[in-house]
């Protein structure tokens, strides 16, 4: 990929975002459970990291911890999130607000609830410019219209006055993207940014993100279930399962030869390879309950390779080839068809 080869104009190899050993605890009626357990990854400027994993494995919670917007039931109990040299987990709320937007920005997974239902969308998009850049209401409005044009909303001047419910699902998602990139952040975390978009609009949004990335040298963390988008857009991939990272590495290598049975199962479920009228292959079973993660490997109940050691000893991330890590005792036995 050409993007990868491009020199980092900042002249530094320091990651734009460095997450280390992140732990998030949730208080539930049944007691405290660990939803995110020692997650680490980092992204350099201009690069894209994809976060993949089963529904409910803790991706959104990881993203929300990074930007400090976790729900009150959840609490970060360990780890560090470094951005521009400081650990955001240790900043005061006021200091953190200053980062949100110009430095660190997020596209939320839930497009409708993230927008204010009683305010015209143009005003909401323009708000960042008023707060962080001190623009007048009129100037902010012009900026908002410009951004709406960039994300492909027809007649943006007219539609800036509309309310969120007057837009289709995909349009709302694009409005959120417009808001998130408004201030040219160093790091953008996009949680399922294109799920509600048809492929032509998705391609347009992905090009827009790439352009911004190239112009501003932005680091992108892309949370998505769309493996094709990951294959096309990301440099590296992190695979999560039940709150932990189970595999990490360059996308190309991981997709062509996975080093964890969960990754393998995920790749095998691709409908592109399916035959109509025949059931799609799926990883059997479901992930363990957070309150009852077994000792040993969390994937043991569903793993085709499971054996005694997996029940006894919890696998930790270990090197598995050039720039790759896996959390499986028997990763070397996987042969990808």
């Amino acid at each position: 990929m050409t993007r990868t080869a491009a020199p980092a104009p900042t002249g530094t190899d320091d990651p734009a975002l460095d997450v280390e050993g992140l732990c998030v605890d949730l208080s539930t009626p049944l007691g405290t459970v660990r939803a995110v357990d020692g997650v680490s990854f980092s992204v350099r400027r201009g690069r894209t990291l994809a976060l993949l994993g089963e529904s409910g494995c803790g991706k959104s919670m990881t993203a929300l911890s990074v930007v400090g917007l976790l729900d009150p039931a959840a609490r970060v109990t360990g780890g560090a999130v470094r951005v521009r040299g400081s650990d955001t987990l240790r900043l005061s709320p006021a200091e953190r607000r200053k980062l949100a937007g110009p430095v660190l920005s997020i596209v939320f997974q839930d497009a409708l609830t993230a927008l204010n239902p009683v305010q015209p969308v143009g005003r909401q998009i323009g708000e960042a410019f008023r707060i962080h850049r001190g623009l007048s209401r009129r100037e902010a409005r012009e900026k908002a219209i410009e951004l709406m044009t960039r994300v492909g909303i027809p007649e943006p001047r007219e539609r800036a006055r509309s309310y969120p419910h007057q837009f289709s699902g995909g349009m709302r998602q694009r409005l959120l993207i417009a808001m998130a990139v408004a201030l040219d952040p160093d790091v953008l975390i996009a949680d399922e940014p294109t799920t509600a978009l048809d492929v032509t609009v998705q391609a347009q949004i992905m090009r827009l993100l790439r352009d911004i990335q190239n112009e501003r040298d932005m680091a992108l963390v892309l949370i998505t279930h769309d493996l094709a988008v990951v294959a096309q857009r990301a440099d590296d991939v992190v695979i999560m399962y039940a709150g932990t990272v189970v595999e990490k590495g360059p996308v190309r290598d991981v997709f062509s030869a996975p080093r964890h049975p969960y990754t393998q199962g995920l790749l095998d479920s691709v409908p592109e390879h399916a035959v109509r009228g025949r059931p799609l292959p799926a990883v059997p079973g479901s992930p363990p309950e957070l309150s009852a993660v077994p000792p040993g490997c969390a994937f043991q109940d569903r793993c085709p390779l499971v054996r005694e050691r997996c029940v006894r000893e919890r696998p930790v991330l270990r090197p598995a080839g050039e720039g790759r890590t896996t959390a499986c005792h028997f990763a070397e036995e996987l042969t990808h068809a």
């Binding site: 993949l52 994993g53 089963e54 529904s55 997974q109 699902g169 399922e192 799920t195 509600a196 279930h225 493996l227 199962g265 995920l266 479920s269 691709v270 409908p271 059931p279 799609l280 292959p281 799926a282 990883v283």
Partner: peptide
């Protein structure tokens, strides 16, 4: 209306199999 858009491929496969 976009019933499986938020699902990972394996869970998506499971749900599509149920619908079929």
């Amino acid at each position: 209306d976009e019933p499986v858009s938020a699902l990972d491929l394996s869970v998506q496969a499971q749900v599509l199999n149920v619908l079929s």
